[in-house]
């Protein structure tokens, strides 16, 4: 029998704890495929953050460190400075990266740390049960914005990719989405590029991924995929915001 589909070798057999319809699992797989294709499992060190992906270290068969909430880019900095020849990536949610850890993310980019960040933007705090994230859309209901997020009180969604692309230290900044196959394919290409740039020593790379949280959005998995396209993508345009070849794209 010919095998046409298999789990990436750099991933473990562990059954994931993610909710049905959650796209965290897809993001994991894309990272796993990338590690396999680049043949870097033996020198990759991952940094798990605090959020639903806190147990990421259980799913990847590579060395891992678990960081405190928001500090993954600082932890990755420490690792990369000790082992510059290794491939270091963090995997962070939007509460982790765009709220409590904004400073760490921006300054890792400013320093041009040669690391890769996989940034999961699901417009909500998943793990703690659906509170507002800095990425929550205007009007979006969460447990802490029961009437919907209002600009007057809580400001407007933060666009991390666009912001980070303005920094000279950032080499590659992109945003893609995980809501259907063509977009997943594009996301994969961006993830692979970001790791490749790191291998080439180009500097800080980040791929923001629009991701679903059916559980806390109060939607079915299908409705969630729809909502990414109809609502999230309006606020968060997809594409590459900066590449080493072309610089910042305005």
């Amino acid at each position: 029998m010919k095998q046409i589909f298999a789990k990436p070798q750099s991933m473990t057999d562990k059954v994931s704890h993610y909710c049905p319809g959650c796209t965290h699992g897809i993001a994991h797989r894309l990272v796993g495929e990338t590690i396999d294709e680049l043949g870097i499992a033996d020198r990759t060190i991952g940094v798990a953050s605090v959020g639903c992906s806190v147990l990421a270290y259980e799913y990847f068969d590579v060395d891992f460190q678990q960081a405190s909430h928001g500090r993954a880019p600082a932890v990755a900095t420490g690792i990369k400075r000790v082992h510059p020849e290794s491939i270091v990536f963090t995997y962070q949610g939007d509460g982790d990266l765009a709220s409590i850890g904004t400073a760490e993310a921006i300054h890792a980019a400013m320093r041009g740390e040669n690391i890769t960040i996989i940034f999961i933007n699901n417009a909500i705090y998943g793990m703690t049960g659906g509170q507002m994230a800095p990425t929550t859309l205007l009007g979006q209901q969460t447990t802490t914005t029961p009437e919907g997020r209002r600009f007057e009180e809580m400001g407007a969604p933060i666009r991390m990719a666009e912001m980070l692309a303005t920094l000279d230290g950032a080499a590659y900044v992109a945003r893609f989405s995980l809501h259907d196959i063509p977009n997943i394919t594009k996301a994969k290409r961006a993830i692979k590029k970001s790791f490749q740039y790191q291998l080439e020593g180009k500097g800080f790379t980040i791929v923001e991924l629009l991701s679903t949280c059916p559980t806390n959005w109060g939607m079915s998995p299908n409705e969630s995929l729809e909502w990414v396209q109809t609502d999230m993508m309006k606020v968060y345009p997809l594409g590459e915001f900066k590449t080493p070849e072309e610089g910042e794209k305005k």
Partner: peptide, 26 residues
């Protein structure tokens, strides 16, 4: 060796965490 001026004490101690976890005296 490597010296990094961090963006805050919080970041600095977490860099220490990463470097120590990577096996260094830090």
């Amino acid at each position: 060796g490597v010296f990094v001026q961090a963006e805050s004490e919080t970041a600095a101690i977490n860099m220490v965490y990463g470097a120590s976890g990577a096996g260094a005296r830090v």
